[in-house]
Computed example of a mutant assay.
Amino acid sequence: MLAVLDDAAGRLAARGIAQWPARFEAEWITDALRRGETWLVGVDGDTAGTVTLDRSDPLWADTGGAAGYVHRMAVRRTAAGLGAVVLDWAADTVRQQGAQALRLDCVRSNSRLRAYYESRGFVHRGDAAVGRAPGQRGVEGPATWVSRYERVLNP
């Protein structure tokens, strides 16, 4: 999983997008693994992607309704198109758990990713500043502006 995340982080950095740190630390994902919220996606026996599907996100504390939250979604370049499958799976999974929406965010400056999310049915729900390094959450450190997106789920 760390290799998939690091690969994606490297591609983002090469495009000048500071979404994630250059390398992910294992302790950043350990709790989500322990809670059973992180998934690996395989294609033909190879690990092609990963996603964490959380039940809450403080970034959305001002928004009501039951929702699932996509974090740390990454797909290897060799599995182009898999992102749409992962997002649909995440939507179906949280819908079955009673959620009314699937939510996610990305750095505001990543216009390509923002356009992709909008093409997948997500609606921009405003921007917010988060602290610490990109890809981590906290209230300390330099602020990074992120754009919040929501996809309302049909029952």
Rank of each mutant, 00 (worst) to 15 (best):
G141Q: 11
R114S: 12
T93N: 02
E118H: 02
G81S: 08
R95L: 13
W60G: 03
T30Y: 05
L12G: 06
G16I: 13
A13R: 15
W20G: 05
A22V: 09
V75S: 01
G141K: 12
G138K: 10
Q100V: 11
A115F: 01
V70E: 09
A3G: 06
N110C: 06
D31F: 08
I17T: 10
D105N: 12
V51L: 14
R114C: 14
L33V: 11
H124C: 13
A115H: 05
D54S: 14
V75G: 01
E140R: 13
E118Q: 13
G83H: 11
V146L: 13
D105F: 02
D44E: 15
A129V: 12
W20N: 05
G83E: 09
G98T: 12
R11G: 11
W60T: 05
S119A: 12
Q100M: 06
L82I: 10
R35Q: 12
D46V: 05
F122P: 05
R148L: 15
D7Y: 06
R72D: 03
A9Q: 11
T47E: 01
V152R: 15
M1G: 04
E150Q: 14
A101S: 14
A101H: 07
R125P: 01
V86T: 06
A48K: 02
D127C: 10
N154S: 12
A8I: 08
Y116W: 15
R112L: 07
L82K: 08
T78Y: 01
G83C: 10
V123N: 08
R137D: 14
V94Y: 04
R114D: 05
V130S: 09
A14H: 10
A74K: 00
A74Y: 00
G42D: 00
A18V: 07
A22Y: 04
A48W: 01
V41S: 00
P58K: 05
D46T: 07
Y69W: 14
Y149L: 15
